[in-house]
Design a protein around this nucleic acid. Structure first.
Length: 171
DNA sequence: AAAAGGACCAACCGCAGGATT
DNA sequence: AAATCCTGCGGTTGGTCCTTT
């Protein structure tokens, strides 16, 4: 007997969240704290799967998150950390507590990747073929990019990791 | 003024790891 | 010790808005 799908397709709503759904989710989490996502749809009556609830909360509804308008400093941090860690968006996000991994990932894919590519081809017009290897090439020269564009970001602080264990650490 | 193309953002899907029974 | 379940992560897709022709 295999494991049942996380959200069996029947009756599960997909697509953009409505303000009403947001309110239900937020008030439930305010009362019970985040975590135990499995029980959220059951207890709230939301026709969403647990994954969708968690995603909505972490990427949009969670208090204290900042969206859009990345500062040059944040941008520098992201480029630096991406060169350091690769596409570990969750790890990168842990250095920018106000940002979500999804937001950072989107920003990287839409803005920074392009910016870096431009920079690289300006720097090494003959080698722009190498740009297909995203990470390997960004590693060394993104630092040069940084030193041109923005002040070098501070060395990565120890990851916050405020009791990420689910269930136990309800904030 | 309308149409086409490109860019951006929010959300979904599948996979992997960790925890629990 | 093995099997199952839940959560989290990264990649990808779809829809909408903005800009250019």
């Amino acid at each position: 007997m295999g494991r049942p799908p996380c959200c069996d397709k029947v009756g599960i709503k997909k697509g953009p969240w409505t303000p009403e759904e947001d309110i239900i989710l937020v008030s439930y989490i305010q009362e019970h704290g985040p975590g135990n996502w499995r029980s959220v749809p059951t207890n709230t009556g939301l026709m969403r799967c647990s994954k969708s609830c968690r995603l909505r909360w972490t990427n949009y509804l969670r208090p204290g998150i900042k969206r859009g308008n990345f500062t040059p400093h944040e941008e520098g941090m992201i480029i630096h950390l991406q060169a350091l860690l690769g596409n570990k968006w969750a790890s990168i996000a842990s250095y920018l507590p106000q940002r979500t991994d999804n937001d950072i990932k989107n920003y990287w894919n839409t803005h920074l990747k392009k910016k870096l590519k431009k920079f690289h081809s300006a720097l090494e017009p003959n080698n722009d073929i190498n740009m297909s290897h995203d990470h390997s090439t960004t590693t060394s020269s993104s630092h040069r990019f940084l030193s041109n564009k923005t002040p070098p970001p501070p060395p990565p602080p120890p990851p916050p990791t405020t009791s990420t264990s689910h269930g136990g650490g309800s904030s």
